[in-house]
Structure formats: C-alpha cells, structure tokens
C-alpha cells in the first residue's frame, strides 16, 4: 500500500518541474533606484523587445544565450556595440535591424541589456567564448 504513493507523487513533481522549465520565464535585472512607473515602463519595453527578438533574431542568436555555432551571444559590451552600429547603419549589420523603427530596435536592446540570463548549462555559455 505504501509503495503506491511515491510513483504518482514523483510524476506530479516531475510534471511541475517540466512545466517550470518549459515556460522559460525570463526575469529582468533592473537597477534598484528605478521608481515603480519607470520599472513598469522598462518592463513594457523589455517585453516588446523579447517578442521582437524572438521573431527576428532568435533564429540564429537563440534566446537563452545558446546561439548557434559562430553566432555571437550578447555581452553588455556587444550590446553597446550593436546599438552603436545600428545608429551608424553599418552595412555589415543584419538587414532586419535597419528595417526596424528606432523604437523597436531600442526595445530589443533594452531586452538584451536587462534580461536576467539563467544559464541552464554553464558550460554552453563559457564554451562558446572559448571556441573563438
């Protein structure tokens, strides 16, 4: 009789675990000094940025820092550089960033800058930089 419980319990726990893992909820690392309204505004931008990133960038760059081989993931410095290049319309840059409106591009950059990167597998993130 006692033996029967552990299996469904285990399944239940596993289901919850999987649920958590697959929802991939992204959290953000906003500066503590922001007011509630500023925080909400920024959150709104980041959410929009996330959707734009998903639709236009994640195909190559991935969304959880797991980009494909040779495609850069984004460190803070890279984001700044990317932003600067967008401003300059660098012809080497991806066409899609030129097509975005400045507001949209800004949303994407806000998302990349403030998202809290959960590294499910640390070796992937560091491994990528070692390859270069």
């Amino acid at each position: 009789m006692n033996k029967r419980y552990p299996i469904p319990l285990f399944l239940f726990a596993a289901a919850i675990f999987m649920q958590c893992k697959s929802s991939n909820k992204i959290t953000y690392n906003f500066p503590a000094t922001l007011s509630k309204t500023q925080r909400d505004e920024l959150m709104d931008k980041c959410q929009k940025g996330k959707e734009l990133f998903k639709a236009n960038c994640s195909g190559c760059h991935g969304i959880f820092t797991k980009g494909q081989d040779n495609v850069p993931n984004f460190t803070a410095a890279q984001i700044d550089n990317y932003s600067a290049r967008f401003l300059r319309h660098d012809p080497k840059n991806h066409a899609v960033t030129k097509e975005m409106s400045p507001d949209q591009m800004n949303d994407v950059l806000m998302f990349l800058r403030f998202r809290n990167v959960k590294k499910p597998d640390n070796t992937v993130a560091t491994g990528a930089s070692k390859k270069r």
Partner: peptide, 24 residues
Amino acid sequence: ISKSYNDYTLNNDAPSIFDKQLYT
C-alpha cells in the same frame, strides 16, 4: 564599408544628389 556616423543617413544607391533617396 563605412565606420563613420557621417554616412549614417546616406544611401549608397542614390545615383544623384537630387534623388529623394539621397538620405534616409
């Protein structure tokens, strides 16, 4: 290839200064 913000708005495909696509 440009590395200068001088070229930010200029369009390489405008064949004339009086083309409306001269700058973005």
